[in-house]
Design a protein around this nucleic acid. Structure first.
Lengths: 341, 341
DNA sequence: TTGAAAGCGCTAACAG
DNA sequence: CTGTTAGCGCTTTCAA
């Protein structure tokens, strides 16, 4: 199909209304200096003819589009989706519209470049600003505002939202420790990510605060994904002296632990306590305790921050930490005499 | 912030390279008639200067943008998200990029108008075509191609993808009936939607084929959402003679049935068999049988269809039915003597 | 209160 | 092989 150029445009409306293009434009943009009568006639025609101004043309001419972009690394991942929901919520209450741009399943090594390209693509033309999730870059060569949600690495000069990963991990560990658990396995996340590092640090520091010797064999890597986490958890559960609890670095890992336990005929929480990071919807059904990051709230917060920057309002802090919270949806078991029960 | 217009543009590259704007444009668009030497120099500068062509300008001039739009009614809903994943998958393998536009949580009555506006907004300017999920409209005043996934109402002349809702419902019912269930409750969906109607028809027709009298008290409305479904299921389970199985019209309703059962101390599948429509990820964990619609496959199929239309390739059928499939992730109980077990 | 005209950044003829 | 030129649909001065 050779697409034609026959959508109704501002000229058509102008001709029909017997006025000039600029008059229609003025009506469109709510300028005051238009005769009430003309305005009504034009408005009527716009409605009747089903005219919508071309986004491309409009954003080329004027510097504001009232469009905010969201760049996500991967639509498949629940994390991104939660953030997106939050962004959407904030957008709904604002005068902006939302445009989501996905990088698809880009090969890891080129993700950073793609990101740069996408952000530029959006911000140089049609959006007033961009929110970028789990950004691999910590710097952008860009004029228009960008806010980053949970970027891979930490940069205090870049407007960004982080979860309190370290504090959350401490909370999770203290919870298990207070229940009496002493052998606690850890399913770690992608080691290059800041969030994964923080969570691991929390695990270690909590142990040392409780004067428990760090046991390397209790740490396995789940890469923040389910399939490797099942294997990792399995490895933990097959240890000669298996852990009584597992702290999983994210939702996928927690689910992996669940699956591995089930495979081995272990029941959660009777035979094994599991606590996981990130928003785990399934926790409602399968007795998991979670450290919710309120991912969607991170999305909303980022959006509000971006809108402030766009409007040139002053920012309190460039970097915001978003408070994580322990949510006991299921339950973990109290431990006596080194035995669950 | 008064955004400035200082992104690097094609002119800058041209000046720097000592060539004309059109030469740069030619390089950009991979035209062949450019000296290898010039091409390399320009390409190098583009990289070095971090130039990205303006989407707005490009789409204004040329009729193709290689961008496909996806208009979703609600990012919060798992249904849309599954479809989006499928679209994204198909996009990844195509030369197109994906732009998602959400209507936010628009009031129901105005959703149809918003839809029209959004589609026009995208298709009149920056996208080559649009996929629209759960469309409230069955007609669009639009030149560029549109494909609809599971529209609210049926229109044989509009390129669209449906699930085999009726056949799927029959399958689900036959499965339960063959297990011996005779009192089967139905949690219905939003009555105005085509899919909900089809599923209900399947429920009724299966009963009548098996010569079971239709009992109105076994049909409750869950509105395709979890909170009302919990109440609806509760009502079913508190009937004097409670059903031994429930057929839920969608995923949210199935989960609602699960929650209601749990509340009442009933166990699935021991005390109650539950089967639900749509893709239920939680089924992996909570013993549900599901009629998967392969929602994400619907998304992919829609995308392929759209791309064909964009390229002017002939379409087999305007309307595609997407085969649903019964997936026994958990299990349902065989029934003897009117008792589960 | 309105119209004419310039130009946003780019592509696609058409010339050279 | 490369440059010149004419718009794409819109907003925004500047004049009337």
């Amino acid at each position: 199909m050779q697409p034609k150029r026959n959508a109704v445009k501002i000229q058509d409306v102008a001709r029909e209304a017997g006025v000039s293009v600029s008059t229609v434009s003025r009506v469109l943009n709510g300028k005051v200096d238009v005769a009430k009568e003309t305005q009504d006639r034009v408005l009527g025609l716009i409605e009747k003819m089903g005219y919508t101004s071309s986004l491309a043309a409009r954003s080329m001419r004027s510097l504001r589009t009232n469009l905010i972009g969201l760049v996500m690394p991967d639509v498949e991942h629940p994390f991104s989706i939660e953030v997106m929901k939050g962004v959407n919520r904030a957008i709904t209450e604002s005068p902006y519209d939302l445009l989501v741009y996905t990088t698809g399943n880009v090969r890891k090594d080129s993700a950073a470049n793609h990101e740069q390209r996408f952000v530029a693509q959006l911000n140089n033309s049609i959006t007033d600003g961009v929110i970028i999730v789990a950004s691999a870059n910590s710097e952008f060569f860009q004029e228009k505002p960008i806010v980053s949600v949970d970027p891979h690495s930490y940069n205090p000069n870049f407007p960004s939202i982080y979860g309190t990963n370290y504090a959350g991990a401490i909370d999770a560990m203290e919870y298990l420790l207070e229940l009496g658990h002493r052998r606690i396995g850890f399913i770690a996340g992608r080691p290059e990510l800041e969030s994964a590092k923080q969570r691991f640090r929390g695990y270690q520091d909590a142990l040392s605060k409780w004067e428990i010797t760090f046991d390397e064999s209790l740490v396995v890597n789940g890469d923040f994904a389910m399939p490797p986490s099942v294997l990792a958890a399995r490895q933990l559960l097959l240890l000669p002296e298996r852990p009584t609890a597992i702290f999983a670095a994210n939702d996928q890992s927690a689910l992996g632990a669940f699956v591995a336990a089930k495979d081995l005929g272990l029941e959660i929480p009777n035979d094994l306590s599991v606590i996981g990071f990130d928003n785990i919807t399934e926790a409602n059904y399968i007795n998991l305790t979670t450290v919710d990051q309120f991912l969607s709230d991170m999305g909303s917060t980022a959006t509000h921050m971006l809108i402030k920057i766009i409007n040139g309002e002053p920012l309190q802090d460039k970097v915001k930490q978003f408070q994580t919270k322990l949510v006991v949806r299921g339950s973990c078991q109290r431990l006596h005499n080194n035995r669950i029960g």
